[in-house]
Design a protein around this nucleic acid. Structure first.
Lengths: 188, 188, 188, 188
DNA sequence: GATGAATGAGGTTTCATTCAT
DNA sequence: TATGAATGAAACCTCATTCAT
């Protein structure tokens, strides 16, 4: 049996990628990523055959991390509002705690490197959230609007909110709550 | 120093940049942009000293184009709702008509090439919209929330809406109106 | 030090090398050769310490195969013409049957990887053929010409012939015979 | 008007390519070729878009050089034998004088980088030689053999001859003449 | 002995920018 | 001013070989 591919190294590469991409954009050099991950430049390619694949995997990793976070303490039996509020809050908390990760996630989302297949996989990862969000969409207030719009709007409104929290970190809790109220009003 | 000789060439370069960046991302080669603009590769640098400046100017150009569009038929004396609805609708119309421009605008916004100075200039361009939007923000419903959040939310919600229109172009009008209702409910 | 454990594996590597080199030239990756041979990339180097050695061994293997083929049914007691014709025909038959092997053999011959030592060994392998060919060279018609020229010319003329057979495979026998007549005329 | 692509540089690249390929095979680095040609590594690609194109152009250049050499003092009114002898001798002279060029030409010919299109162009370059060679092929002695075989055989026999001249350069003239006699006997 | 992950030099090609023409 | 050839620093990726397992 030869040396075995180490999950630690894989994780180190993805971590390094977040750091470098946050700093230099998607053009970040694979060599720099490898260096920061503490491996030889060529080694990166035993874990990800091309840069493109690395980026796609990174996207999935980031998405899965947020979803895991939301699922963790999900209040399955709470009221719809409570559940939606949980999604709202936990995503914003994650976004602020790991702002580089969020930044990279957005860059990837906007770019053309993420394949439809990857987008599909990412969507499939939404566990408890999906149930909650679709419950939300069935409300009268969103009648006649395309499925998925509620979720998309939530994401969009969260993204808008984040920038303001970044500028006034001390008012974090207040902004998060206040913005949720705005969102919730829209959904009623 | 970018002494501008022919406004036509300048415009041609910006147009070409939109096309190429929409196709290949911000990494689009200046040489390709020049070629598409029908000029020699070196000439581009007579109009824009560096690629970075080109991108910043492009961003301003795109922003100014949207704002001009909104200002054009702005219903200055209409009700607040009517005026906000105008902003909402005219932006979405522009986004759909010039989807490449919007795509590029988003890419630029997310990336790090746009300087704070450029962002400042872009903000300063909002004419009639600004008055309307700040009127909106002064409402009780947004009390306690940071200034600018309403505008940011509108932008974010529009971006979310656009993707759904792209997927169901025939329901365009209905989605635009429905989504506005959602937005307006949030603002009340 | 290439302690040979399994002759089957060794043979598999050489076979795989023929295939890959025929497809991609001498630049064929050792890893691909190993893969096709059904072994791990590192194992290849247990059998051949360097790629260069592999290529040299491969050259000898191919040469020895042709010579073995010629020796197999060699008409030791036939007339000189009959014996030479046997060499001519059996080489061409082999070349057509194993065209990849011939192609690789030529590539190796032309390149600089084959050492003089290997060339020497290859020459030493010519068994019955050598006797026949030197008999041919002693004829008056080749007087004053360097030793070995007859054999070289035969090889050259065969190589020229092969391409025509490849293009008109149905006339194979006729071309082989006709070309031999041309060659034989040259030798008389 | 910008700087103009200089034929001298193009020639320098091709010359450098001959030198480097003769030394290291077709794997010769484009950077090394550029360096030897006295230009920046990137400049090479303004003259030849890819290495493959460079190699194809190089092949044509070498072929055209030989053919030009043969055409130069071609004895159009001499006997067939005299004309064929001219082709024979002038090619061998060129091969010996520019042995690196010949070596590279052979490497290219054997490899797979030369496209069929290039081969076609190369064939089309044979001027006076073609007329003479086809006259040769119409002789009774080659009846029933594929068109082009005579020319191919001549090439092959010349190649065989060259190696012997390389080993005994002092007997050059004698070997050239002797080998031609052998060839001519084959053609009668 | 067999495996395949790890290495890092080296390969081709691209690109923003400069500058001779 | 306009041109596009020239530059050389990266960029991504491949590969022969080593060596821990």
């Amino acid at each position: 049996m030869a040396r075995v591919r180490s999950p630690e190294k894989r994780a180190a590469i993805l971590d390094a990628a977040v750091y470098e991409i946050a700093a230099s954009g998607l053009g970040a050099a694979t060599a720099k990523i490898a260096q920061r991950a503490g491996i030889a430049s060529g080694t990166l390619f035993t874990y990800f055959p091309t840069k493109e694949e690395l980026l796609n995997e990174l996207y999935l990793e980031l998405k899965s991390e947020v979803y895991a976070r939301m699922d963790a303490s999900f209040p399955h039996r709470a009221s719809l509002e409570q559940r939606v509020r949980h999604v709202w809050t936990s995503y914003l908390d994650w976004s602020i705690e790991f702002s580089k990760k969020r930044k990279v996630s957005v860059q990837l989302h906007v770019s053309d490197v993420i394949t439809t297949e990857t987008h599909r996989k990412a969507t499939a990862m939404r566990g408890a959230i999906d149930t909650t969000l679709s419950e939300l969409e069935n409300r009268r207030s969103l009648e006649g609007l395309p499925a998925g719009l509620a979720m998309a709007m939530m994401g969009a409104m969260q993204d808008a909110t984040i920038e303001f929290i970044a500028r006034q970190p001390k008012q974090r809790r207040q902004i998060i709550e206040g913005a949720f109220d705005v969102f919730w009003r829209a959904m009623r």
